[in-house]
Each structure stands twice: as C-alpha cells, then as structure tokens.
Simulated scan of single mutants.
Amino acid sequence: MKTLKNLIIIAIVAIMTSCASTAKFPISSTVPAAEITAKKKQDKNNNYIIELTARNLAEASRLNPPKNNYSVWVVIDNGSIKNLGQLSNKNAKKAVLETTTPYDVKEIFITAEDQGNLSYPAGLEISRTSFNE
C-alpha cells in the first residue's frame, strides 16, 4: 500500500512538472558564452510563473558600450511588451530571475539597459526566444 501511495505521488509530481514550457535562448553575439533558458508554468490562480536562468552571462558593465543592468521583457498574447524585472548578475556562474505575471507570455527577451525602471526597452537586445505551445 505504501509503495502504491509513493507511485501516485511521483506520478502527480511528474504530471505537474511536465506542464511547464521551456525555451532555450539562441547564442548571443554580444555575450556568446551565455547559456540562457526560460521556463513558464501556470499556477493554481491562473497566473504564470516565469523562471529565467542565465549561466556564464557577463556583467552588464563589461559590455561595449557598458550598461548598468539586464532587463527581462515579455511579449504577451496581444502583442504588448511588459518589463518583468532586472536580472542581477555580478559575473556569477548562474543568475536567476523568478517572477509571477498574470500575462500569457509568448516571447521573452533580455536587453542591456542604462536604467532598470523602464516601461519600454531602449537598450541593446541580448537575446530573444519564444515559448512553443
């Protein structure tokens, strides 16, 4: 009976995990060593949890021209662009941004910006990808 219960729990976890969409960013000519992925999954309140992971991403101040931060943007189903936040990175091996949004995200992209509180991207686009559903 205990084995059956464990198998059911494992199956439920596997089903819940498989509901996430994963998108891999293409190699960027600006930061070619960076390996960037994004995951999107829906929570019980019908919001979307976005987790962006960047490995080997150079600090924004090391770009040419130097910038102050990386901003993460999404394109939602009506074509609007929304700022998800800043990706904090101080030459770390791994930088992660996890956030919740009510928008169904179709595309996600990263820009290098001089300011972090922008409502529209103005800086250098690092990389862009879309969620295939």
Score class of each variant (00 low, 15 high):
120 Y>K: 13
126 I>H: 02
63 L>C: 08
60 A>N: 07
112 A>T: 12
89 N>V: 11
2 K>M: 12
67 K>E: 10
130 S>Q: 12
110 I>P: 09
69 N>I: 00
6 N>P: 00
34 A>Y: 02
100 T>L: 00
94 K>A: 10
93 K>C: 07
103 Y>D: 02
63 L>M: 10
117 N>A: 09
107 E>D: 09
80 S>K: 14
123 G>M: 13
52 L>E: 08
30 T>D: 07
69 N>R: 02
62 R>Q: 14
25 F>K: 11
31 V>M: 14
24 K>D: 11
10 I>A: 00
32 P>V: 05
25 F>P: 08
133 E>I: 14
93 K>Q: 13
92 A>N: 15
25 F>D: 10
70 Y>A: 14
123 G>V: 13
92 A>F: 09
104 D>Y: 15
104 D>F: 15
31 V>N: 15
38 A>N: 04
58 A>W: 01
22 T>W: 03
70 Y>M: 13
79 G>Q: 08
59 E>Q: 15
71 S>D: 06
56 N>F: 00
80 S>L: 13
103 Y>C: 01
41 K>R: 14
60 A>V: 00
84 L>S: 09
92 A>L: 11
20 A>L: 01
22 T>G: 03
72 V>Y: 11
113 E>Y: 03
112 A>C: 09
71 S>N: 12
40 K>A: 08
46 N>H: 05
48 Y>L: 05
116 G>W: 14
8 I>G: 04
11 A>R: 00
114 D>Y: 11
26 P>T: 03
89 N>Y: 02
56 N>W: 07
77 D>Y: 14
55 R>S: 10
90 K>I: 13
66 P>I: 04
101 T>S: 01
95 A>Q: 13
48 Y>S: 00
37 T>I: 07
119 S>E: 05
116 G>I: 12
23 A>N: 05
40 K>S: 08
52 L>F: 04
42 Q>Y: 01
39 K>V: 12
4 L>C: 11
99 T>V: 02
31 V>P: 08
55 R>I: 09
24 K>T: 12
92 A>M: 13
62 R>M: 13
85 G>R: 06
78 N>V: 06
8 I>Q: 03
33 A>W: 10
76 I>Y: 01
25 F>L: 08
28 S>M: 03
48 Y>E: 02
10 I>N: 07
67 K>H: 08
129 T>N: 03
